[in-house]
Design a binder for these strands. Sequence first.
DNA 1: GGCTAACGTAAGCGTCAACTAACCATCCGG
DNA 2: CCGGATGGTTAGTTGACGCTTACGTTAGCC
Lengths: 117, 117
Amino acid sequence: MTLTLANANVGFVIDVAFHALAEPRRREILRVLSDRELAAGEIAARFDVTRPAISQHLGVLREAGLVEERRDGTRRRYRVRTAGLEPVRAWLDGFWDERLDALKAAAEAEAGGDDLG
Amino acid sequence: MTLTLANANVGFVIDVAFHALAEPRRREILRVLSDRELAAGEIAARFDVTRPAISQHLGVLREAGLVEERRDGTRRRYRVRTAGLEPVRAWLDGFWDERLDALKAAAEAEAGGDDLG
DNA sequence: GGCTAACGTAAGCGTCAACTAACCATCCGG
DNA sequence: CCGGATGGTTAGTTGACGCTTACGTTAGCC
């Protein structure tokens, strides 16, 4: 309601994704999981922080749809969910397109609109 | 020094960029600036928060290399700096490539390595 | 059933970030 | 020079976040 943009539904997903990616540790977790599936303890073993900290990070990544959880006995294997990165890429692409369109329109307007052919 | 990764120099730039983009208000500022150049007051007039808040956001965006400042009398016109978004895109692309390479290698290894030709 | 391993969760704590209010700096017209 | 306009800066507050310690939960094994 604050702005005129329709950021009621779409903006939330993008916000969660960017928020999750803003933390360097979470990006490193994604990098570690990029090529293989690992259990929570195996992930935590690669960092200096305690295991609960990693668990909380995994929870944030899971809420953002960036990782997927698969239960295997007492283990919980985590794997990257590629679809979760699409909102971010879509935001970047949309930004680019919007900008290019505006620049092209501005160039045409400045030239008088007779340089199309 | 915390990890074995060489995130001393490159990681900092990416961190600053992601941190700047993590704030929804700053992403909206970039959207507003995507098609036109605006002064600080004109930007602030489009939001509910006070001008100092916008000024601080603009400072963060400037430090992250996402916007450019151009002085014009007492006015300060701000414009999007496209190059600032490249580290983010590079991170996403690098993540994709790394992941695809690992998956391809895993598939070849699982097949026995004789399915190359 | 008891024991251990693997994990998530809750409470508490220190730190950082976003916001507001008040202040300071710069530029321009009279 | 003076007054208003534009806008960055500082001090202080509030809320969120990441981390640790302690505890609860589930699965497998004897």
